[in-house]
Amino acid sequence: MLPETFQALILAMRPQFPRLTAANSRPTSPFDESYNCIAWAANELDRWWWPDSQHQSYWPPEIPREVTLDAFIRAFSLQGYTEHSDAAIELGKQKIALYSIGDGKPTHAARQLADGWWTSKLGQQIDIEHDLTALDGPVYGSVARILARPAR
């Protein structure tokens, strides 16, 4: 994506992501609706993950189909993640940030990169890399939990 195109997209996204700027984020993929942020955080590119009641999305069958932080933490625990107190980059650790809004409703997940930035799939839209607070706002809320596992 051309820088000017991303700049225009950021402007269009201002109401949803008021903190997002070209300085704290960069685009890394074209539009792709095959996967969402939860799948992307779990390193999957061909399925949409969500615990919807109508079973239209993938959700690990052993985890309750509940839109709660607990259910999301349990889903990522299947990949070896546990709750962690610190979002700072740590050698030998892979981290995921879970975002929530309101009374703890999960909205989004981001995965930490080797340089300390985070990678996110924005809904049905593009992937971006960003700093941790760049997506705070009325759509995703803010980071509610940090998960970590030994780097693989």
């Binding site: 949409w48 009641s53 239209q56 999305s57 909205t107 809904g123 049905q124």
Partner: peptide, 12 residues
């Protein structure tokens, strides 16, 4: 209005 959402439920 739903392009940024991951929640299948919120989209529907």
């Amino acid at each position: 209005e739903t392009q940024w959402l991951s929640s299948t439920t919120d989209i529907a």
